[in-house]
Structure formats: structure tokens, C-alpha cells
Amino acid sequence: MGLDAFVYCRCWQDGLTPPAPVGPVGFDEEGYLSLLVAGDGYTEAEAVFDGWMASACPHELMEQASEHLANWTGYRLFQQALGAAGWSHFPTLRAELPSANGGRMPAEAAARVLGELDHFERQAVIDDEVVLVDEATEAVALRYVAAYQGVLMLGPGYRAGVDQEGFFVLDPDSDPPATLFRSARFRQRVLPGGQVQFSDEEKSVRIAMSPVGGAGTPPEQLCVKTRPQLPAEFDYIVEPLRRLCQAAVATGNPVMWC
């Protein structure tokens, strides 16, 4: 799950499609090209309209551009980088980037975003990132995400993550949440029965939770590091966002967040 977006083409607006077999058709209050009739559930007319949209022009679903931007962690990390570089350089991004799925960004704003993305790529100075890495491979297991207060793992009876002070596991059922384990460098051992043992030079605890870096073989020795970040590391979201904005400028249609 994460944030996706699209921009409608102009084929229907410019009269380049065959007439819709049902109607009336237009942009609804949320900006979606829709069948503007009230109905209970998914009606036969809506099915006919959807079939027309799928084949009325060369663009799939009448979308000039359609992009997956990032999962929510990647999206929050991008926002974090923008804030570290200075929101004053990115006023349109700050105003227009959504906090959840849904909404739209006007084409006029998309034009300004293109300039802000250029500034981010060429001039942004970003804070160092805090990461938890596998000491054997340097693979990143967790990244500090300020929007989540560092918490990236959730389950019954635990919250785990990483911040500037190290890796931590909290008991969310206590008030305030008690720290079950915290360390900047530690060993991890997966035990039977769904438990994980965390240990460093001072302590050893067993906690019922998923292992850190659980995809594949979990790492055994982990440590927290601070390392430099470059704007190019955010190409995964900058480039699709740029393509969406270019499509919005070309068509005059908004970027639809979804």
C-alpha cells in the first residue's frame, strides 16, 4: 500500500472520443470523470460507462499518466528530506502533497512543483539518515522515520523501531509505554514459539514479536549508523512525481492522488 496518482488525458474534453453510450458524463465534485447520475450500488449504466472509458481513446482508462509514487514509509521519508532541506524552498509541495489517499493538485500547482523538484535535485542539502543495518552485509533493516516517531514494526504487545539513540522495543500496553529493549549494537536470535532474543553487552531479553529484517534469513548482528543522504536517493518518488506534473501541465488537468 502507498500513494498512487494519475492525470486524465484530454481526449474526451477535446471531443476526440466517441460519444458515451450513457449519460450525462462529466467531472464530479472530486475531479473524477464519471457518470453523473445517482444510483444504488453498481448499476448497469455504470458498467457500460466503465467499458466506454476503457476503450474510447488510446490512453488506458483515459489517463495521460499513471504512477505509483511510493509506499507510505518511502513517502514520509521524502517529506522528511524536504523538511530537512527547508520547506521554504518547497512551498507548493508542502501545500499540495497529500496526507492520505485522495484529493487533487491543480495543473497550475504542478507547474510550480516542477521547479521545486529541480531545486531539490540540484541544490538540496539533506540531514544524515539514521539506519539500522546488518553488520555482515550493511543491508538496511530499518530507517528512522520522524513522522512515525521511529516506530516501523507493530504487533500484539510490541512496537519496535529505530531513532537517533538506537533500536528500541516498546510495550504499548503500559502507560506510559515501557521500554523492553534499547541498544545501538546488539545480537538477534530467533527462538521457537514466535520469540526473539535481543542481547548486547549489558542485557538480554526475550520478546514475542517478529524478527527485525524478517524477510528471508533475519540478520544476527545489527547496529545503528548515521550516514549521508543525497537527493538522488529519492529518485524513486521524484521521477514519477515529475512525470505526473509534466502530464498535468500538458493537459491542464489536475494530478489525482489515489
Rank of each mutant, 00 (worst) to 15 (best):
V37G: 10
S99N: 11
Q80R: 09
G51T: 03
F234L: 04
H59S: 10
V151K: 15
D127A: 15
C245R: 01
Y32S: 14
G86K: 11
P254L: 11
L117N: 07
G150L: 01
P19L: 12
H59P: 10
Q80T: 02
P58F: 10
L191K: 00
A248L: 11
A215C: 05
D175S: 14
P18I: 01
E202S: 15
V162W: 01
G102N: 10
S34D: 15
H119A: 14
W87L: 15
R206L: 01
R122K: 14
V131N: 06
H59E: 02
A70C: 12
E63N: 07
T179D: 06
F27N: 04
A107N: 04
D134K: 12
D14N: 13
K225W: 11
C9F: 02
E135F: 02
C258N: 13
D4E: 15
A5C: 09
M105C: 15
G252Y: 05
A110Q: 05
P176Q: 06
V205F: 00
R10I: 07
L33G: 04
P24S: 12
V249D: 00
V255L: 02
V25R: 14
A56L: 06
R227F: 13
K203R: 15
L97M: 14
G15P: 14
A247F: 03
L132Q: 01
L152W: 04
V249R: 04
T251N: 05
C9T: 11
G2P: 00
A84M: 09
R10M: 08
P192F: 09
Q229I: 03
C258D: 12
P176E: 12
R189C: 00
